[in-house]
Amino acid sequence: MFRRVSRWAAGLPLAVALTAGLTGCGSSDQATPAASSSSGAATALTVFAAASLTETFTELGKTFEAAHPGTSVKFNFSSSATLAQQITQGAPADVFAAASPATMKTVTDASLATAPTTFVRNKLQIAVPADNPAKVNALKDLADPKVKVALCAEQVPCGSAAVKALNAAGLKVTPVTYEQDVKATLTKVELGEVDAALVYTTDVLTAGDKVKGLAFPEADKAINDYPIAALSKTPVPDLAKQFVDLVLSAQGRDVLTKAGFQAP
């Protein structure tokens, strides 16, 4: 009991995380900082990475573990904005890979990381269900009020990219929902609940046959840079740097481009 009380009392930085807990199920994608810090042996590396990196970074993590016997790589995948908040509130991360420069800036502004490097870029695509029930062919079809569209909320990177692309095309699209992250947006397409959504090329690829991706020219105006940085407070700076190097290496780039990312 003492431990718990003292943790709450000292837990002002956790206040923000608690807000999410209070409102329900935000916990599924929350980090458990206490758990990862308790195993803070020199052989554990904790990587906070954007949700869109889930598949590729998991693979790179295995590669890294194989090359560094005795090291285990732990991931926390979530929306970049959430991760940036967690890091500035003191979550014990060693490496941060974000889906937008803005979310990385939150962390560098707090002097928790320096000199992030852009390692990949991601472009938006129109995702439609495999049978494309609303016959969406181009970005302008999304402005049709009969077409049900899901967009990411403007607060998350895929949402601000969508706004940029739509502005570039001079279109006004009223979606039926602003989803909390790119995976949730894609799920609405997979389930056929919406006729179209704007998501990243990489997410369309991971969805497989259920979703078809349509490239559109305005996507070039809204390319997302993904920055990565080793965090300055890491107890394992060497390992953190080696992981960043792996992501930036030819081998890392290979894994990432195969998944639909573009080289910077």
């Binding site: 329900g24 959430t82 998350v156 909390q180």
Partner: peptide, 16 residues
Amino acid sequence: PLAVYLALETEPEAAI
């Protein structure tokens, strides 16, 4: 609760 969650993404103060 949805507004809180989204506010938390960019503006923790607004979420509070």
